[in-house]
Design a protein around this nucleic acid. Sequence first.
DNA 1: ATTGTTGCAAAGGGTTTGCACGTAA
DNA 2: TTACGTGCAAACCCTTTGCAACAAT
Lengths: 134, 134
Amino acid sequence: MKRMTVQRQCILDELKKSRTHPTATELYECLRHTLPHISLGTVYRNLHRLAEKGLIRKLELGEGESRYDPDLREHYHVRCIRCGHIEDVVLENVLDVSTIRSQQGNFVIQGFHLEFIGYCSQCGQEIRGLNHEL
Amino acid sequence: MKRMTVQRQCILDELKKSRTHPTATELYECLRHTLPHISLGTVYRNLHRLAEKGLIRKLELGEGESRYDPDLREHYHVRCIRCGHIEDVVLENVLDVSTIRSQQGNFVIQGFHLEFIGYCSQCGQEIRGLNHEL
DNA sequence: ATTGTTGCAAAGGGTTTGCACGTAA
DNA sequence: TTACGTGCAAACCCTTTGCAACAAT
């Protein structure tokens, strides 16, 4: 992260503009409109570096592609089991890590990853529709 | 899961014997001692089916290979950031999902994934050693 | 006899990397 | 001018899959 290149700036801007916690591929497709020759490798490289520097967060929860989040405030995510759509969940003081011990008591626990799962409004509706058909 | 083959039984037995939440590859390497011709594909196929039937749990948290757990009781895991070693964490009534709402309130939240991270005793020691050297 | 399961190898998805070229500092 | 960053393509890791042969029911 020694130089601010056009690509790096665009990736960061695009991510900050987004509200969907996009994947690297989604960002890539989007960026190609303004930077037709950008490569997916560059997108990955920059997302990695930006996350490393703490400018963005990498979300690697559950299966599938990692997603990226420009919002650094404490919050969690709920992911739709059916379509993968993600929404924010704001919660404070969820867990006090200092009170938690591993089974053998040998671990120094420093933090946690937490993700909620469920059905987004659209998938919830569609599932109810399918049930009626049965 | 219509037939109990030698392979399927061995995979289940090996997993139940283990205390390390092994990966598919780790199980594969281990099983080759007794079943030299077993294939990694078979291991994956069976782990998938066993998890589907609820006989084991698939742990897909953070990066890297998925791990498999024969313990179906409610418990969580702490993963060493440095070496990947996993230990159990027993906690009850961690979160009441019914009280949680997504930001737009559109999600029907059904559950959550929770994983703790930290340093195992060995890595904790080694890090302290490295700090002294500095 | 039927059909689920296997071993094998190839393909798949997501991500990283080696290289020569380009460009911000 | 000189590292650092890029585009490209190949490689990588983990996992799934197509297929013909095999074996549990």
